[in-house]
Design a protein around this nucleic acid. Structure first.
Lengths: 203, 203
DNA sequence: GTCTATACACCGATAGAC
DNA sequence: GTCTATCGGTGTATAGAC
């Protein structure tokens, strides 16, 4: 009994340290870019030396992996918080989903790069981390089903369109709104293609 | 007179060496990824030592810069070669433009990363290299104008949609066709939105 | 277990000899 | 123009202190 408590404390402390490390990595990624995150800088941010990080993560990519899962969990939280303002009307709801994702992505380019572009050298998300992304996607799929959209093709297309606008915005007009302004129109195109009227509510 | 000839020969030889270096870099980027290109490997490929590359390029990013311009020139050539099979019908022509770009991009992920994702650390294309990308874009704009599409918004949207499908394909199903299959449908959505009928020819 | 010091192989880049 | 030598910086392996 006492032993269990002790072990829990230890595990808690361990996972707290992991959190601190990941948070420090996020801070550096935000300030200097994803590729500019170095183990020495991360370590210094949490009051350690670089090799000490290997006590908590087995490689730098393992830290990226934790960040990847973290990012998709952050998105789920963000999306949940925005749910209060979700419209009933199907077309408006889709605009809402797109806008929420767009804003979340554009607010933190390095995070978006990690989540959606597969552009970190030699990094592939582990199955555990990937599960967070799948969970977010399933959540989105369930919402879309409420509006009568249930084909995988439809979801894939929606995601590609929104992410295409995000990527163009970040790559060609960072901080601007050249592609942001086109988001509603793009979703309307999509809704038209699926035969979802402007007034229609969930079937 | 003779001096001029000599100088031309020298310049020619110099630009030939630059070509060899860029080609070697392409080969490495293709085989191992864009970020895995090292100056030592590039140098070895052309029978040099790494520091000698600095005679021809002032930094590694300067090589990336030459590759960036080169990539957009390659695309212009590729697009020109595909022009023979370009349909007259406006909607079919747009499908054609999209497919040509999609195939070109997917055929060489590292090249697409350099061209369209802005994801190489600390690299921003020079004005000279960027000009090649602008030229390709202008060319595309002229073609679209022939089909009655001349708004910048329309072009931006088209590009973002196609690039979104490319990026999703490369990131989530490399080598597959999960998003490739959706390309024609996406273009039809776009054409519908612009009121371009299936049978319509250029106005 | 947690952390440190040390070390290694590799990287882009520079200095200077030839 | 190309070389060798070298620099500071990187991820990471290891040995050992506490």
């Amino acid at each position: 009994m006492l032993g269990e408590t002790k072990r829990d404390r230890k595990a808690e402390r361990r996972s707290e340290t992991r959190r601190e490390i990941v948070d420090a990595a996020w801070r550096l990624a935000h300030d200097k870019g994803l590729a500019q995150v170095t183990l020495r800088d991360v370590a210094e941010s949490v009051g350690m030396r670089a090799p000490s990080l290997y006590t908590h993560f087995k490689s730098k990519n393992d830290i990226y992996d934790a960040m990847f899962g973290d990012a998709w969990n952050q998105y789920q939280e963000y999306e949940a918080a925005a749910r209060a303002s979700e419209p009933k009307n199907s077309r408006a709801a889709m605009r809402h989903y797109a806008r929420v994702y767009f804003d979340f992505a554009v607010a933190f380019p390095a995070r978006h790069q990690l989540m959606s572009l597969r552009t970190v050298p030699d990094f592939t998300p582990s199955e555990a981390a990937y599960a967070s992304s799948v969970a977010a996607m399933e959540h989105f799929a369930a919402r879309m089903r409420q509006h009568g959209v249930d084909g995988q093709d439809d979801l894939d297309l929606f995601v590609a369109i929104v992410d295409g606008l995000v990527t163009a915005q970040l790559a060609n007009d960072p901080g601007g709104e050249r592609w942001s302004r086109l988001l509603d129109r793009a979703i309307d195109m999509f809704a038209d293609n699926l035969g979802i009227t402007s007034e229609g509510s969930p079937p």
